[in-house]
Amino acid sequence: MHVSDRIIYLFLFLVGLSLIGMILQSWRMILYPYLIVIGITILIGMWKSIIHVPKKICIPISVSIIYFILYGLLDILSLDSIADKDYYIFGMTPTMALYLIAILPSAVIICLLYAITFTHGNMSNNTNENHELDEVIK
């Protein structure tokens, strides 16, 4: 099975989980699978780059892990944020601060990652590289 097929099946599975989350009204079941989808999306964009430097696969994995940590922390903080009325970070409640100081900039950092990992030379390479990627992932 080609790696692109595997990625699409994983994508299908995760989107399916999010859909079940919607039906069951479980926001965690919608959000957490989607955080893996973000990593998969970046993996798809970096395919060619990863072929040449397989270690780069840690970039999409790290993005998903960082988002898991950030939203996990937000989840934990949200559990008692209403009672916590006396603790402020830059004048904001901890959850608000986490969102505006960490989660919003993370989105911009992902945009920056595109520039950092961009390899223009890739656009003229041959079509056999998908098969090479299969081998790399295997």
Partner: peptide
């Protein structure tokens, strides 16, 4: 200032000062 804004929001409804406001978490995840 930010802290005054936060405290005013909390005085009316503590949820208004959180990152999700009074919205449903399901809607935000969607």
């Amino acid at each position: 200032g930010m802290q005054t804004i936060t405290q005013n929001l909390q005085s009316a409804d503590p949820l208004l000062a959180t990152s999700f406001g009074t919205y449903s978490m399901v809607s935000i995840a969607c």
